[in-house]
C-alpha cells in the first residue's frame, strides 16, 4: 500500500495536470457534501424584485428570472449531479464488470448471447435510448440513474470481457483451477481483483460522461424537475434569456458542468498513468 502511494506520488510529480484534476475532484466532492450548508441564499427561494441581476458582489453569478441566486443554485446542484452520475456508474460498473468477466472467462453460449445483447444495445443511439427509458419508466430521478446505468452497461461488459480474455489462460488462472477453484471462485477471487485497476480508469472517464448524460436528460425536461437546482435544468431555463444578453444564467452552470467533466476525464487519464505497470520500474 505504501509502495502504491509512493508510486502515485512519483507519477503525480511528473504530471501536475492530474494533480490539479485530483484537487478539482476533491473540491467537487467537498461541495457536494457540505456545500449546501455554506450557502448565503436559499437556492429555491424566489425573490422576484431581484430577478435577472448580473453578477455582483452580493450575487457572484447573478440571479435568475425568479431572483434566485445562481451561485447558490450551482453549488447546491453539485450534490444531485454527482450523486446521479456516481450511482449510475456504480451500477453499471458492478453489473457490467461481473457480467463481462463471466462472459470472458466462461465463453461459449453465455458469451454469444450477452455479446449479441450488447450489440443490440449499442446499435441504438444511446442518448435516445436513455430518453425512451426515462419516458417509459416515469419521470423520476431514480429512472435517470437506471437509464444512465443501462446505456453505460455495454462499455463495462465489453471492457471487462476483453480484460478477462487476455488473462483467462495465464498460469495463475490455471493454477487457481488446480487449487480447486471453480469458475465462480476464479472470476470473483482472481480475475475481478486483477482487472479492477484498469476498470477504475474506465469508471473515472465514464463519470464525466454520466454527468453530461444526466444534465442532458434534465435539459430536455426528463428526470429532475424544476425548481430543483440541477445544472442541466439551469442551462435549459437560462437558454430562454440568452438572446436578451443574460449570459450568466447559461454560462455559470455550464462552466460548472464543464469543470466537473474535465476533472473526471483528466483524473481518468492520470489514473491510467498511475496504474500502468510499464511505468512501474
Amino acid at each position: 500500500m505504501n509502495a502504491t502511494l509512493r508510486h502515485a506520488a512519483w507519477v503525480l510529480r511528473g504530471n501536475p495536470v492530474t494533480l490539479l484534476a485530483g484537487l478539482g475532484t476533491f473540491v467537487l466532492l467537498l461541495l457536494a457534501l457540505i456545500g449546501p450548508a455554506l450557502l448565503a441564499y436559499d437556492p429555491v427561494a424566489s425573490n422576484v424584485p431581484m430577478a435577472l441581476q448580473p453578477p455582483s458582489a452580493a450575487h457572484w453569478f447573478g440571479t435568475d428570472q425568479l431572483g434566485r441566486d445562481v451561485f447558490s443554485r450551482v453549488i447546491a446542484a453539485t450534490r444531485l449531479d454527482l450523486a446521479i452520475a456516481a450511482s449510475a456508474v456504480a451500477l453499471s460498473f458492478a453489473f457490467g464488470a461481473m457480467i463481462g468477466a463471466f462472459c470472458g472467462y466462461i465463453g461459449g453460449r453465455l458469451d454469444r448471447w450477452v455479446g449479441r445483447f450488447v450489440d443490440v444495445l449499442m446499435a441504438f443511439p444511446l442518448f435516445v435510448l436513455a430518453m425512451a427509458l426515462v419516458a417509459a419508466l416515469g419521470n423520476r430521478v431514480e429512472n435517470i440513474i437506471y437509464a444512465t446505468a443501462i446505456i453505460n452497461l455495454p462499455f463495462y461488459i465489453r471492457f471487462a470481457r476483453a480484460e478477462v480474455n487476455v488473462r483467462r489462460n495465464l498460469g495463475w488462472v490455471e493454477a487457481a483451477r488446480c487449487s480447486g477453484h471453480g469458475p465462480v471462485g476464479v472470476v470473483m477471487r482472481f480475475l475481478l481483483p486483477n482487472i479492477l485497476p484498469a476498470m477504475a480508469v474506465q469508471v473515472s472517464l465514464n463519470l464525466g460522461w454520466a454527468i453530461l448524460n444526466a444534465a442532458g436528460l434534465s435539459f430536455l425536461g426528463l428526470g429532475v424537475r424544476p425548481p430543483t437546482p440541477e445544472w442541466g435544468i439551469m442551462v435549459a431555463e437560462g437558454a430562454r434569456f440568452i438572446t436578451s444578453g443574460k449570459w450568466w444564467l447559461v454560462v455559470c452552470p455550464g462552466a460548472a458542468l464543464m469543470f466537473a467533466v474535465l476533472c473526471f476525464n483528466l483524473l481518468g487519464d492520470g489514473l491510467r498513468d498511475i496504474l500502468d505497470p510499464r511505468l512501474r520500474t
Partner: peptide, 11 residues
C-alpha cells in the same frame, strides 16, 4: 508452470 512470472496471481 513454465513462466514463474505469470503463474502467480499478481494480487
Amino acid at each position: 508452470f513454465q513462466d514463474p512470472g505469470d503463474s502467480l496471481n499478481p494480487r
